[in-house]
Design a protein around this nucleic acid. Structure first.
Lengths: 347, 347
DNA sequence: TGACCGAAGTTATACGAATAACCCACCAAA
DNA sequence: TTTGGTGGGTTATTCGTATAACTTCGGTCA
C-alpha cells in the first residue's frame, strides 16, 4: 500500500487532537522523563494516540529550536572505496550512534569543489562536527570552511596545524615490527619500505624510523645493504626480496612495510626454494584483510587501527575538544600468524 | 579562534538588517531565480550582506516548510567494511550528490534493533528515501518501517516482494563467463562453485544456471564430474581444482565462481607444475581488487557492478518508482586479463 | 480628475516542536 | 474568610525560512 503520498506523517497536533489534549501536553509527556506533571490517565491517552497514529517526531523542528542537529559530517577523499579503509567510516559511525547521532557521509574522490560544496551543505544542516578522513596517512590542507566548525582530521594530519588529527603511530608500528623479529633472535633484519624517505609519506618515514630505533636499542647498526625502498607494489617486494636474499650477506628476517610487498617477498622466497618462516621470517604491515590471512603461512603483520581511529575522531568531536592542532597517534596492534620464527643456527 | 560558541551563524534576519531590507526580501532575492521583482541595487545590497556576514541557509527551517529533506538514508548490514562492496556506497552517494542530496549512512552489522532505531531516526529526518543495502546477494526480510517510505533494496532482493530491488545478474554473469571459455575453443569446461545449490545463494545458483545454459547453447552436456561445490574459500578452490585436474578426464578450462576460489585453483595448477593459461584456462568472478589484478597471470574475471548498482538504487528513489517488488538485474562486465587462451591440441 | 497599473517592497503566517509563563480548581492552614 | 500551595493542565512564543497577500508610490491614459 504505502498510502497515496502521506506528504509528511502525523504531527504533535494530530496526536494532541486524537488524545484530547493540547500539543504542549503531548510534547511534555513525550519528553520530560521524570517530571510527573500529568495524570497517569492522560499520559496513557497520549501514548496510545502516538501508537495509533504512528507518530514520529520531526527532527527538523527540533533542530530548529535547539540549534544543533544529531548528525556528524563525514568527508572522505575515497575512504569508502579503499578496501582496507572502509572500516574507518564504520568506526566513526559506531561511535556516533552510541550517542544517537547519524553520519552524513560524502566521498569526494579528492575533488576540492565537491568537497567545499558538500561541506557547505553539511554546515547548513547544522552538523555537530565534521570528520575529514583521508584514504592514506599524509599531511594535507583542510578546506577553509572547516575552521568554522568543530572538526577532526582522520588518518592524516592538518598541515597547517589548526585542526586536531587522529592517525596511526607509524613509528611505534615500525618499532614493534622490528622488535618482534629481534626478539625472535634475528640479528640480520632487512626492511623493504613502501616509498623513499624523500616522499615524506608518514608511513614510509615513520616505519623506517621505528625500524632504526629498534635496531639501535638492540645495539645493532642499521645496515644500508639490508634496506630497500620500493613503490609499495608486490613486484617491488618480489624484486627487493630477491636482491636481499641472494646477496652475499642475506638477512634472516625481513620487515616489509606493507602486506603487498610481503606478498611479493613470499613469491621470491618460493622461487628461491626457501621456506617461510624456516629460512626467512617475514613481518608485514597493514593486515590487509583479503591477503594477509590467506598467504601460506599466514602473514604476521600489524593492523592499522581504522575502526579505533574512526571512533576516536568522532569522540573528539563529541567531547568538544580544543580546536588546536594536536595529533593523536594510535597503536597498530600486532596480528600474530605464522611467518615468524627464530633464525636457523648458522652452520 | 573559531569564536566562543557561535550558537548558530547569522540568519536571514541578520542579513536583512545589514542590507536594510526585510527578511522576505532576502529570501526572495536569494531564491527566485528569474522573477526580477527587485531593483538591481537592492539585490546587490543583499548579496553583499550575505557575503559579508557569511550567511548560510538553515536547511532545517527549509525542510520544516517544505516537508522533505535533501537527504537519502543508506542502511547497510556491513557494506562499508566489506572490501569489495565499499564501492556500493560510493555509487549511491555519487548519484545522490548529482541531485544535491547527501547520504545519511548507517552500518548496522546485521543488528535488527540498531537497524530499526536508525531507520526511525532517518525517517524523523524526513529523508527522501532509503536504500537498504546488503553485503552479499541474497533474499532478505526488510524492516517493517521501510514499507512506509520510498525505498530500494540493494544487492539483494526483498523476500516479500514489496520493495523494488537492484542486484547483479548472476545468471547472465555465469553464462558470459562460460561463454568466454567456450568461445576460446574449450569443450571441457569445469566449474568450481561457491556454495551448494541447496544454499539458495543467488550467486551460487545463478552462476551455475548460467554455466549450464551456456553449455547447452553450445550443444554440450553438463558433465557432473566437471563440477564441484565448495564454500568459497581458496582452500576449496585448491582442493577441487586438484581433483578436477588429476581426474581421468580433466577439464582444459575452469570457471571459478569467485576469485578466491580461483586463487586456490592457481595454487593447485602451480603445484601440479602446469601453467595458466597454457595448460588450463581460468575465469573467476568478483574482480576482487586486492587479488585478481595481482595474480600471475592476471585473472580474467567478472566484476560485480557495485558502483552502478549503488547509482541505480538512488536513481530509482529519485524517480519515485512504483513501490512494487520489481527486481532490476545489472550486468557484470568482463574484466579481461591473461588467464584464458585456446586449449592445447590434444596429442 | 479619477481609474488603473506595474514596480518594488513589506507584513503576516505557516511549518512542528519545546518551553516559559500562566491558569484554574481544590484543599489546607491561619 | 483569606491566603497559599499544588496537581494538572493550557496558552503563547520561539526557532529560520518561504510565500501569499497586501501596501505604496509614481506614472499613464481616457
Amino acid at each position: 500500500m504505502a498510502g497515496s503520498r502521506p506528504k509528511s506523517g502525523p504531527t504533535m497536533h494530530d496526536v494532541a487532537a486524537a488524545a484530547g489534549v493540547s500539543q504542549a501536553t503531548v510534547s511534555l509527556v513525550l519528553n520530560s522523563a521524570s517530571g510527573s506533571r500529568f495524570s497517569e490517565d492522560t499520559r496513557k491517552r497520549v501514548r496510545d494516540a502516538v501508537n495509533r497514529l504512528g507518530y514520529r517526531t520531526n527532527a527538523h523542528a527540533k533542530v530548529l529550536r535547539e540549534g544543533v542537529a544529531g548528525m556528524i559530517g563525514f568527508i572522505g577523499d575515497s575512504v569508502a572505496t579503499t578496501p582496507f579503509a572502509g572500516a574507518i567510516i564504520e568506526g566513526a559511525q559506531q561511535r556516533a550512534w552510541e550517542d544517537g547521532l547519524l553520519l552524513l557521509a560524502v566521498n569526494t574522490g579528492g575533488d576540492r569543489q565537491l568537497e567545499a560544496a558538500s561541506l557547505d551543505t553539511m554546515l547548513s544542516y547544522k552538523v555537530a562536527g565534521v570528520v575529514y578522513a583521508a584514504m592514506y596517512h599524509r599531511r594535507l590542507e583542510v578546506p577553509e570552511a572547516l575552521a568554522g566548525v568543530r572538526s577532526v582530521v582522520l588518518n592524516s594530519q592538518d598541515r597547517a596545524g589548526r585542526v586536531p588529527s587522529v592517525a596511526p603511530d607509524e613509528v611505534k608500528g615500525g618499532y614493534a615490527a622490528t622488535t618482534r623479529l629481534l626478539e625472535a633472535g634475528h640479528t640480520k633484519v632487512g626492511m623493504i619500505n613502501i616509498e623513499t624517505l624523500e616522499s615524506g609519506l608518514p608511513a614510509a618515514v615513520g616505519r623506517y624510523e621505528g625500524y632504526c630505533a629498534a635496531l639501535e636499542e638492540a645495539g645493532l647498526d642499521v645496515d644500508p645493504s639490508l634496506v630497500r625502498f620500493g613503490q609499495g607494489g608486490e613486484e617491488h617486494g618480489y624484486k627487493y626480496a630477491m636482491e636481499l636474499l641472494t646477496s652475499s650477506n642475506p638477512p634472516t628476517a625481513i620487515f616489509c612495510a606493507n602486506d603487498r610487498g610481503a606478498w611479493g617477498a613470499y613469491q621470491a622466497v618460493s622461487d628461491l626454494r626457501l621456506s617461510i618462516p624456516g629460512d626467512v621470517s617475514i613481518v608485514g604491515f597493514d593486515n590487509q584483510a583479503t591477503l594477509a590471512p590467506f598467504l601460506r603461512p599466514g602473514l604476521t603483520t600489524f593492523e592499522l587501527p581504522f575502526v579505533a581511529m574512526g571512533r576516536r575522531a568522532v569522540e573528539l568531536i563529541l567531547q568538544d575538544a580544543e580546536p588546536d592542532g594536536r595529533v593523536e597517534l594510535m597503536d597498530c596492534p600486532l596480528i600474530e600468524r605464522n611467518s615468524v620464527t627464530h633464525p636457523k643456527e648458522m652452520p
